[in-house]
Nucleic acid binder design. Sequence first.
DNA 1: AAAATAGGTCACCAGGTCAA
DNA 2: TTGACCTGGTGACCTATTTT
Lengths: 433, 433
Amino acid sequence: MLMSADSSDSAKTSVICSTVSASMLAPPAPEQPSTTAPSILGVTGRSHLENALKLPPNTSVSAYYQHNSKLGMGQNFNPEFRSLVAPVTDLDTVPPTGVTMASSSNSPNSSVKLPHSGVIFVSKSSAVSTTDGPTVVVQQQQSQQQMPQHFESLPHHHPQQEHQSQQQQQQHHLQHHPHPHVMYPHGYPQANLHHPGGIAVVPADSRPQTPEYIKSYPVMDTTVASSVKGEPELNIEFDGTTVLCRVCGDKASGFHYGVHSCEGCKGFFRRSIQQKIQYRPCTKNQQCSILRINRNRCQYCRLKKCIAVGMSRDAVRFGRVPKREKARILAAMQQSTQNRGQQRALATELDDQPRLLAAVLRAHLETCEFTKEKVSAMRQRARDCPSYSMPTLLTISTLLIDRQRLRRRRSHISGPPTSVDMHRSAKQYQLAS
Amino acid sequence: MLMSADSSDSAKTSVICSTVSASMLAPPAPEQPSTTAPSILGVTGRSHLENALKLPPNTSVSAYYQHNSKLGMGQNFNPEFRSLVAPVTDLDTVPPTGVTMASSSNSPNSSVKLPHSGVIFVSKSSAVSTTDGPTVVVQQQQSQQQMPQHFESLPHHHPQQEHQSQQQQQQHHLQHHPHPHVMYPHGYPQANLHHPGGIAVVPADSRPQTPEYIKSYPVMDTTVASSVKGEPELNIEFDGTTVLCRVCGDKASGFHYGVHSCEGCKGFFRRSIQQKIQYRPCTKNQQCSILRINRNRCQYCRLKKCIAVGMSRDAVRFGRVPKREKARILAAMQQSTQNRGQQRALATELDDQPRLLAAVLRAHLETCEFTKEKVSAMRQRARDCPSYSMPTLLTISTLLIDRQRLRRRRSHISGPPTSVDMHRSAKQYQLAS
DNA sequence: AAAATAGGTCACCAGGTCAA
DNA sequence: TTGACCTGGTGACCTATTTT
Ligand SMILES: [Zn+2]
Ligand SMILES: [Zn+2]
Ligand SMILES: [Zn+2]
Ligand SMILES: [Zn+2]
């Protein structure tokens, strides 16, 4: 796993990638294998600070957060059993370090269309890795270790339920995963935790929270990991207009608990850590997708996702956003916008049947070796030959079919808009000028 | 089908038109053709965000919901067969995308008198579409795709019954409809689903839920679709005092599953999606009118109606109503009231025989070219002529007859008040201050 | 002082209940 | 089965506090 140093902004700079207190956190799963601490595979040092590029836009970040009043959604907690202990955060006792995990599978410079809004996700590496210095690769044995400390530390922790917590966050381990259904959220890989110290573990991917092994998780699109030379990851999800919640994809209202998130996820996380909440275990496979429209359907997975993306009481940032940070954010958003633009252009082309047809046809005629004319000639020649066989042509219809399939999949990802959407009108993240 | 981009309000602009997740939603009908994903015919982008108008009314919405204690009504479910499967929603696994469908047949700016209370329904387009941005036209292959995801996704889904589910929501497809009697409600077009992203598919009509092909459905009157520049539709039914249930016209107790609805319909829909309820197919023509007094007569059609008006687990909205939204609702109610006022004024005039007579007479005398005097003159001239024919006069009595007919029809629609009405006194939707 | 967020508030709703 | 009521959770807003 890759961990990038997260300079976050202001916070603790000295903390060096502290691993999670696995022991405390992960109660051994009765039937599951015990949790192991992640091992560092490789570490690369990386220079930073020079990032201090001049992106002195006096634009305020707050301008990019929007208000969204919106809708919650489903709900589905079976009162019958609440075996899952809500990871009650109890920071006081918890160590401040957070480790970010990135899925190593994500290749740098990869631009992926993510589930949420079908926007592209620019992996950090693509955006910046070029000149980046060192990167730390951490191999995790268990996901639990990556879990936010509060889980372990919290006094109210209910061990009895922990047996379920065993999760294999790691891609590597995914396969080996003994129990497909993990009951404990702790196993989630922790994202975004910025290392306070200079050496932070940064996820290779801007959306490390959703590593390969958790593909089932809908990943926010438009995430842009900006990391310029040593700069900590930003992991911003931007839809071209507003910053999105890294947990559910809704409009983010600010940087809450270390993560750009919406009012809903902020409140949910706050409640989760305030009380020693124990959420009922996921009734599915602990991999519920968390989107605006369904974020209330599974508290267990929602909290898991919150933690996965890095929400933590330790990551809290107060006060005004430092200029440098602001500049970085704006830059990330711009990059995101650019990426989106390209993405959109491509999508537009793909969705524009006439244009696509024209393009395909043109290309076909220009390059196909079996056009009517050519074939005629061939036939003629063939006829002059004793035995010959007709070539099979790839038809446009074939291409169209594939396109439909693609579109279906895409829409599937972004999810259908609901009537609720209409009523949305809330506050969004805004960078003050 | 028309889909308009719903810019909702603020939401993500960058979202690229996500199509409906047909695959997930529509379970293949055993005997029916498989569902296909809708194809986008055209998409128009629309600007948004500027909507950020200041609508700072501190009025609370809850004040407009009333309590209604009510009355039940008929009930007649034959236990013998329940062939219809209730669309059990099970979002977790479902993709978030929803496509809104509007019946293209509904023309914008149409003001229709609806069944329920004989009040006018202002289609969204009429109210606002003018300056609205782009609209997306989606051609749907199957109606199921448009169905709320829960239907497909729900684990409890009963395939055996799906064969009936094949429905042609689309007008286009209506004709082709293989099975006149659809057993599965899923086929219903989903209304109001806004795409979270900037480019959303918005129903062309404010009441897309009740597309042409479902004309038989009684539509609530007094519905007012307020959509100001990019604002999402409100689709509020207001009787001058309280917000009405879009399903049955009873007093709405709140915004449930994305629709203003009464406690009864809320509970009914909840039960429908919780259990894999299979309602017996409608014994009529699947077009039973759903009114407070008869809503319990046909579960099949009631659920169908619920879906038609947009109820969906994906449309759930939690938390307090945003101020902007609240303001919009109040404005819509006011508009509704105004409309009602005009409507009433007209109705009053029509029902005041003496006044009507006077008015008609006056108009007649002022404009008719065949008044006694004029005719006399004409006759005289005619007599001087060899051959002439007497003109046929349209008499006032003719007008009166038509009026009676109209009145009869109207009362029929609104339905006679039952004794139950008198005992009603339940909670109604109220906007808190 | 300005900008931003953690928390507190409390309007609102999904669901569960249970008498009818 | 239905639907009036009640409960717990949700999230839009507002305020106190922190940081620049
Ligand atoms: Zn969120
Ligand atoms: Zn879950
Ligand atoms: Zn109702
Ligand atoms: Zn019926």
